[in-house]
Design a protein around this nucleic acid. Structure first.
Lengths: 337, 337
DNA sequence: CTGAAAGCGCTAACAC
DNA sequence: GTGTTAGCGCTTTCAG
């Protein structure tokens, strides 16, 4: 490996001068600088980032911790984060918790050993306040803003559900059911509340037998629309689903029963997965700005880093109040409503 | 930050001893070791991985370079790589080239500055021999084995296409068309050749007007099956598609025209994306072992690292012949054939 | 078994 | 403008 000392020797200067030249510091003779830069290029010099980081007391890695990168939602976020980070000379490491709080805890510790510049994390469902008390580096959490002292970013599920429900109402559906995800999921709860509120604001009845919880998958959607439409009670004429997979299950059932969509029955999904936009599916849904989520997260990390450095430099004790950001989802009107 | 010196002071030993104890070296008094480990725990000591790496002259990062992590294929690979790497105390950084060779080149350089332990790369389509000549760290390339001196891993597209074509033939289809992806893609070319070979082996005619190339997307599949079935020539009764998106476009067209699948027409896809397994799609296809691809890549990196270290240690000049691995795809028989 | 000390490659403070 | 030097936190000889 070739180091600044090698260059120094060849250039006949001290290696400190090489360092200065390569880092474009002021107070270096332009000629010397030029010569050194040229030499470095010729010799194929690559700065040893590890050594630089040791001096700086911080690496140029941002750790992204998610339950599972292969989940399209997180994959999209991962991409926007890596792109944003790369623009500022940071590198992003990916870590999967596999939805396991123990693993999450381990990774959190491990990443700090790596002297990462910052951590962006989507906590497992079992996150509780205090989990991040031991984190000593810039941190951004994808979660609902709470009174914690960390930076939070989350999608505004209330607005999303309101958008969806109102759209269904505007289209003239009178009996709108809710096929939700896991009952314990905060996202699900917020959407349910917003759905109920939207109905009430239009003086429509909220029926408990039209509200259900369950797995976020296709089969679950199929089974639930089936039981909704095959019992004796009043039947809904539209349904708002907790995610697109559920909606796909609903569509499949309706298709099998020859119930025409959107004429006889309206369907709204949530998430806008790739397949929802396909002509053969063409599902109306709510899109969540994942791209913005990633970019914003990197922004906040960089902001914290900057703040930290300024504080160290000026040796003060200023307090940076945490950012709490809610991202607005967007209505995608397609064929099913 | 708390360092080994802090621990040493508190334990009344030298910091070298602390290092030894924490690294579980032999030749440390068991009592001392125990005391130090306990102390480290109490004081919340976290090893500074950067400093460790500086000494080791290598980081514990493996760089994964792909065109786009948000592509499900790469997302799956990313997951299996991170999981395999984490088991060996390595961390994986993700880098997107955005299919841009310039960006790829830059990242390749940048990652070596980071002193990464190894690089796993899926090259952009413009890869040519020699691209990796400047790489001085363990490297694994997802590409077709060639005479380069690097480790290669690739899916066996020939076998995959053979599997698909033979299955169509076995099911009794007589006129099998090929709707391929980009004509320049090596994967596409290999599959085309295998398709032709399989037909010939069954003494079936290879018709050039049943072979087409184009975008790997749904619309492209739709348009191409349309022109195949709406012209005057002999019409095929089955089609092998270059990927599942193309097949989805085909299915949509057949559905619109009320052509029953698999009775009147057979369809095979390639890739086994998530949606192919959905009951409403139920596409027969070829699954590629992405999980194995990731695990194997990490294996090879670790193997190279080990080899390198042994060579340094013994100061010899042994040559390690590169691994060239072809992974076997798997036939998924579902409803469309 | 343990301590002293060199050194990994680099930055930055200080001297000239 | 440039050289000298300390030091980032750690591992690893080398003495003892």
């Amino acid at each position: 490996m070739i180091t600044i000392k090698d260059i120094a020797k060849k250039a006949g200067v001290s290696y400190a001068t090489v360092s200065r030249a390569l880092n474009d510091k002021s107070d270096v003779n332009p000629k010397t600088k030029k010569k050194i830069i040229k030499l470095a290029q010729e010799m194929g010099y690559r700065p040893n980032v590890i050594a630089q980081n040791l001096v700086k007391q911080r690496s140029n890695n941002i750790a992204l911790i998610v339950p599972d990168v292969s989940n399209p939602f997180f994959a999209d976020i991962a991409r926007s984060i890596t792109e944003a980070a790369n623009e500022s000379e940071y590198v992003v490491t990916i870590n999967n918790t596999g939805w396991d709080p123990k693993q999450e805890h381990y990774i959190l510790d491990h990443m700090q050993s790596q002297q990462v510049a910052g951590i962006i994390i989507k906590p497992t469902v079992f996150y509780e306040p205090g989990t991040f008390d031991s984190v000593r580096v810039p941190l951004v959490v994808f979660w609902h803003p709470n009174k914690d002292k960390t930076d939070f970013i989350e999608m505004d599920h209330s607005i999303g559900a309101e958008l969806a429900t109102n759209h269904l109402i505007e289209r003239g559906y009178k009996n709108i059911a809710y096929i939700g995800g896991a009952g314990t999921s905060p996202a699900n709860q917020l959407r349910l509340m917003a759905y109920q509120k939207a109905l009430q604001e239009h003086e429509m009845e909220v029926r408990q037998d039209w509200i259900s919880y369950g797995g976020f998958n296709l089969k679950s959607g199929y089974n639930r629309i089936k039981s909704l439409l095959e019992n004796d009670k009043v039947k809904p004429d539209a349904v708002f689903c907790g995610n697109d997979y559920l909606a796909l299950g609903v569509l499949q059932y309706l298709h099998e029963k020859n119930i025409s969509v959107p004429e006889e029955f309206g369907v709204m999904g949530y998430d806008d997965i790739y397949f929802s936009s396909l002509p053969m599916i063409n599902l109306s849904t709510i899109a969540q700005p994942r791209d913005k989520m990633g970019k914003k997260a990197v922004d906040l990390i960089l902001d914290q880093i900057e703040f930290q450095e300024k504080r160290n430099l000026e040796n003060n004790n200023n307090y940076r109040s945490p950012s709490r950001i809610l991202l607005k989802p967007e209505l995608k009107i397609r064929g099913t409503t």
